[in-house]
């Protein structure tokens, strides 16, 4: 009787394992992975705030969200209108400034993409992504 329960548990675990492995094989090409942002490119709200005037805040969210509310002093720079907004951002930048880019939340990719373009295309250094984005900034407001 004692062994019966053990046997049943083993069968259930084996079945679960078979199902999990089958699903893993079936969906192997269907899972999207994105490498995490390196820690050196991330900044917390507290750290970014401590930079004071030495930081330029960049809002990578769509125009409508920026229009609703944004970090005071932030500049809008999103990929919907990148070619139009970048020239508005550049006059505010100088080499000693750090750039803090944010989007809606931890899960959004817009800040990461905008930060990458600033580094790659404009070759601007010291560009950081705000951890937790706008949501986190609101929490610590």
């Amino acid at each position: 009787m004692k062994f019966r329960g053990f046997r049943e548990a083993t069968v259930l675990i084996a079945l679960a394992a078979i199902l999990a492995i089958s699903e893993g094989i079936y969906f192997r090409d269907k899972i999207s992975w994105q490498s995490p942002i390196p820690a050196s490119e991330l900044v917390t709200v507290d750290q970014a705030r401590a930079w004071g005037d030495g930081a330029i805040w960049v809002d990578a969210r769509p125009d409508e969200e920026f229009a609703q509310d944004h970090v005071p002093g932030a500049l809008s720079l999103n990929e919907d209108r990148w070619n139009e907004l970048l020239p508005q951002f550049l006059p505010n930048w100088s080499p000693e400034k750090r750039v803090v880019v944010y989007c809606s939340a931890e899960s959004c990719n817009a800040a990461r993409d905008v930060a990458k373009r600033l580094r790659d295309e404009a070759q601007i250094k010291d560009v950081f992504v705000l951890q937790g984005g706008w949501e986190e900034w609101l929490k610590k407001k």
């Binding site: 920026f66 229009a67 944004h70 932030a74 809008s76 209108r81 139009e84 508005q88 505010n92």
Partner: peptide, 10 residues
């Protein structure tokens, strides 16, 4: 010196 309007909408 070139800052146009920091919080200006796009």
């Amino acid at each position: 010196a070139l800052r146009p309007s920091p919080a200006a909408p796009p």
